[in-house]
């Protein structure tokens, strides 16, 4: 579904990403974890086209999308949420999702009832009760769910989620985990960045660990958790 090949990003003299490659197979839920400043959000920006890589390629399916602008990539089935929340703060919760569904209708032509789809999606992420509220009245945790619903309204085949669980209660974050598993079961692929390690370990089949702009480990949750290199990255123990 998604292949990132040898992506390098520089900000001034600083290398934010140093030749990152990873793959998200069709229908997989892949986790991406790593300490703050490791380059996770930068990688998301490269994949969605908000950031131009200095080197490397991004492929969706067989197609090289590296030179496409963000909205063209979205139309090829890429959706995302943002770590620093990017809701439409002058619109209601429902309108936030509706705007995305309507956009889908205008370029996808397969969204007969955007208003109903928006309501259904909000119901699905657990925001059915607040859909008429202005979005700026919601706590941040719920805003992340608004973003998830909005991303789903574009009917993406691949979903990039940037810390959707932060600011959620334990209960809400469990529900989010179930939702993610459901979404993958429906045939979507997901790349998940999340600080809530327990959530990642629970739902992901495969995890990549990013540290200082490089992938330092890849494996199943169990493998990653036991990997001394990962422990070193997180805890500073001298790597064996």
């Amino acid at each position: 579904m998604l292949r990132v090949e040898d992506v390098e990003v520089r900000f001034g003299g600083v290398q934010a990403l140093k030749g990152v490659s990873l793959e998200v197979p069709d229908g997989a839920l892949v986790g991406l974890i790593g300490p703050n400043g490791a380059g996770k959000t930068t990688l998301f920006n490269v994949i969605t086209g908000l950031e131009k890589p200095f080197r490397g390629r991004v492929l969706m399916g067989d197609q090289d999308v590296t030179s496409l602008p963000p909205h063209q990539r979205a139309r090829r089935g890429l959706g995302r949420t943002f770590q620093r929340i990017e809701v439409f703060s002058s619109l209601t919760v429902h309108e936030n999702v509706l705007a995305a569904a309507e956009a889908r209708r205008s370029w996808g032509r397969d969204e007969p009832e955007p208003a109903r789809s928006a309501s259904e999606l909000l119901e699905r992420v657990g925001l059915g009760d607040v859909e008429r509220e202005r979005v700026d009245k919601l706590p941040t945790g719920l805003l992340r769910l608004v973003e998830v619903a909005r991303a789903l309204a574009s009917r993406p085949r691949l979903l990039l989620l940037d810390e959707p669980g932060s600011g959620l209660s334990t209960h809400e974050s469990e529900a989010l985990g179930d939702l993610l598993v459901d979404l993958v079961r429906d045939g979507r692929s997901i790349l998940l960045v999340e600080h809530d390690v327990e959530l990642v370990m629970r739902v992901c089949q495969q995890i990549h660990v990013l540290d200082f702009g490089s992938i330092i480990a890849t494996g199943t949750p169990d493998q990653v958790q036991r990997d001394p290199v990962v422990q070193a990255a997180y805890l500073g123990t001298s790597a064996a």
Partner: peptide, 24 residues
């Protein structure tokens, strides 16, 4: 209507608008 929402969405967050397929 849809156009008004798109306009306001684009104003509120250009990045999010682009990632839902809207051409700014």
């Amino acid at each position: 209507r849809a156009f008004g929402r798109r306009l306001i969405a684009l104003n509120d967050s250009p990045a999010a608008s682009a990632t839902m397929g809207v051409s700014p």
